[in-house]
Design a protein around this nucleic acid. Structure first.
Length: 337
DNA sequence: ATCTCGGGAAC
RNA sequence: AUUGUUCCCGAGAU
């Protein structure tokens, strides 16, 4: 509550001083802008990335250094006091409340801003050395033209971060590599025939598929209507974020797979042969065939794969039930970029 | 233009 | 699992 007030005071003061290449936790700045900046670097020939990740970032910020940076810009004693109080207020460890000499409370209102104030020192250093970089919170990417340059830059950066800022770099997660392979904000960068493009990282693709799979599990006693609504809001949100990327093939595959799963789900909901029969007839199947199909013993998946369900449950029928065609939605969203 | 709630995403 | 900042979408209120 009181932290929010402090945040509102500090935010505008410090945000003005932050680097143009820092995008995390800042007003009017999004992950899209960050990945777009990275893409620009790639287009300019910086085809290797030094990806530096801080270990337990929020826990390792040095209080005295941080307060020093704040004192440079803020004179108000009350604000300084409150900030120090906030820093001292402790972090949660294994559910226990521990007072802390280091670190800022995870999930605290001030933490994101404080992390930016702290890492702003790193942001100031990088351009001095002529490095192209993008930072989003503790995820810092420096773009260089060769692997060799990359290793050199990484070494120097780690040295600065650990010796000057007293942070711990996560060496497992940090690496020099190609932006084609490495994940940044859920995306990766890919040169194509018609230019450099942004794509969702493999992990992002897998995780959305997993979420859809969970939503369409047959176990849950939800109505088709509810399921379709949930799919709609999940995919609307997901495409709002990932729609910036080029992924026509993936989307088409996902769409086909999902419709397949939905038909299976609906068929399963018509539990008894009687309901199946009634629904099939209602959807315009002649009585003879409806009777045969409704008594079939094949597994649900095979049934929905077969033309049995495609005939009555056409794409049009799915749409009528509330299914949002992912391919069309993607094309629509993506056309804005 | 502000705000609440619901959802998606980054960290 | 929960919290936080920011961005985006939807619904609603003034």
């Amino acid at each position: 509550m009181i932290q929010q007030a402090v945040n509102q005071v500090l935010q505008p003061i410090f945000d003005a001083t932050f680097s143009n290449n820092s995008f995390g936790f800042r007003p009017k700045r999004s992950a899209h802008q960050a990945i777009t900046r990275a893409k620009t670097y790639y287009e300019q020939g910086y085809k290797y990335v030094v990806d530096i990740d801080m270990k337990a970032y929020f826990d390792t910020v040095n209080h005295d250094k941080l307060m020093y940076y704040i004192e440079q810009k803020v004179q108000d004693k009350r604000v300084l006091c409150l900030t120090r109080l906030y820093l001292k207020s402790g972090i949660m460890v294994n559910g226990l409340f521990e007072p802390s000499e280091e670190g800022t409370r995870q999930g605290g209102n001030l933490s994101p801003l404080l992390s930016n104030i702290y890492l702003n020192e790193f942001d100031k250093l990088l351009p001095k050395r002529g490095y192209k970089f993008v930072r989003y919170a503790d995820d810092c990417n420096i773009y260089v033209k060769s692997m060799r340059a990359g290793y050199r830059v990484m070494e120097k950066s780690i040295k600065f971060l650990e010796e000057e800022l007293k942070l711990t770099v996560n060496r497992e997660k940090s690496a020099v590599g190609s932006p084609m392979k490495r994940k940044f904000l859920g995306f990766c960068i890919m040169p194509m025939r018609n230019g450099v493009k942004i794509r969702p990282h493999q992990q992002a693709k897998l995780s959305v598929k997993q979420k859809l799979r969970k939503l369409t599990k047959r176990n849950r006693g939800k109505s088709t209507e509810v399921i379709l609504k949930q799919i709609k809001q999940l995919m609307t949100g997901w495409l709002n974020y990932y729609g910036i990327s080029v992924m026509k093939r993936f989307i088409n595959e996902l769409n086909g797979w999902l419709k397949h799963r939905l038909r299976q789900y609906i068929w399963k909901q018509w539990k008894k042969p009687k309901t199946r029969y009634r629904n099939l007839v209602q959807l315009g199947i002649d009585k003879q065939k409806a009777y045969e199909w409704s008594n079939t013993r094949k597994g649900y998946w095979r049934i929905s794969a077969s033309y049995i369900l495609h005939r009555p449950l056409t794409d049009k029928e799915l749409a009528r039930l509330g299914y949002i065609d992912i391919s069309k939605k993607y094309q629509f969203v993506h056309s804005n970029y």
